[in-house]
Design a protein around this nucleic acid. Sequence first.
DNA 1: TCAATAGTGTCTTTGAGACACTATCCG
DNA 2: CGGATAGTGTCTCAAAGACACTATTGA
Lengths: 243, 243
Amino acid sequence: MEAETSQHAYDPTRYERPAVTVDVVIFTLINQELHVLLVQRRHWPFEGFWAIPGGFINMDESLEAAARRELEEETGVRDVYLEQLYTFGDPGRDPRMRVISVAYIALVRADAQKISVSDESTDVRWWPVRALPDQLAFDHEQILAYAISRLRSKLEYTTLAFQLLPELFSILELKHIYEQILGEKLDKGNFYRKIKESNLLEETNVVREGRGRPTRLWRFRRDRTTDKQFVFRWREDRIDRNP
Amino acid sequence: MEAETSQHAYDPTRYERPAVTVDVVIFTLINQELHVLLVQRRHWPFEGFWAIPGGFINMDESLEAAARRELEEETGVRDVYLEQLYTFGDPGRDPRMRVISVAYIALVRADAQKISVSDESTDVRWWPVRALPDQLAFDHEQILAYAISRLRSKLEYTTLAFQLLPELFSILELKHIYEQILGEKLDKGNFYRKIKESNLLEETNVVREGRGRPTRLWRFRRDRTTDKQFVFRWREDRIDRNP
DNA sequence: TCAATAGTGTCTTTGAGACACTATCCG
DNA sequence: CGGATAGTGTCTCAAAGACACTATTGA
């Protein structure tokens, strides 16, 4: 219950209030590799450090709306997969004041992220998750680590990976993504089998030529951008511990 | 990143701030049935409605510490399983002001909850989740529904069920809990097999007499109260959608 | 003895994984 | 033809489920 813990009425306005921000961990795939968007801070504290993009919530918008606003401000992208990750609120995580940060994960399609992130500005960058900056601002290392771990575990039992792919892709490309993110090699035959059995993909007539035998391209069946259906599961074992 | 969205420095203090509360959905098992603790509101808004216990955070305590404080205030119980659920922050969910609520789930052992919840006070009650009040205060129906769904899905792939059990219990009791919470009958033989293979339980010499053949009692192997090891998984399929 | 509850054994089916095989392109 | 990449078929083994069986108590 809110604003009332014991038997008497409370005056909630007399409480000191923390600041509330929304931070968005934005993932995309660049050259088949998982990247995350970070911004470089220009002021104290943590001046020069890289940080997860975010900002204060407005009093009239929902948390998710705030996350979408931040996302669009940073990348110009809308209608992407967005999910609340966790809320971080330890005292002292920001030296200026008490800040509660509601962290979100966003998945941006591989072909969409080109639109965004103006190339000339050096203070916003896609970082490969395998080679992140040594130190991040605030407790953002912890947030990012948790985001990556959650993404990994969710990919194992959801269709989330499709959110990262372009409209058309080959099955072996998809396999590659899974390998990237799970960090292990998968068997080609078994992958073909499972993905076909799942019936989540739709064959197209499009074929892409390459060095060897040309590849058939496929697309994800349902409305991709906002799909939250959790159907396909590559592997059974996954763990999502709290940070 | 916090307190800085664009290129210039911000004065964060000029932002209006929401109130931040922590709500704790406290589960326990009474007569083998899942119950949740609710408190009845005595003041506007939602006077007379039942609500999830919670309260404002102090400026010098972490979110989890606030949740533990609330939990102890309501039930007198410490050292229980506690996990952050989700953060609810839609504008208008509290008519008095903008409130961000960080919701937690707590699991209280079956034999512990007797200590708590003074019987004479009618404004704090354990409610069976199968027969909850029609309407709850604020958006607490949504919070509670999500908590139950999360609990269900987590029980399927974690050892969380043990957190609800007393120190000693029989395997068929454990099976009963799983059936209760999953809402389906499980095969006795298969349950015995899986639970033994998991090696999570430790046989005791204690035997409980009943109507038929006496039952051997078991205990959970590791430090139970704070154990977060996710090892035993009754079934593979689980889904945890956002609320 | 039987009713009641506890606990075990075993057969069948499913599905994951390993891995060898075939297919189609370019040169 | 051979190298390269795409895609298929099939065997094995382990785990899940169904279900029949045995065990131990009290009345």
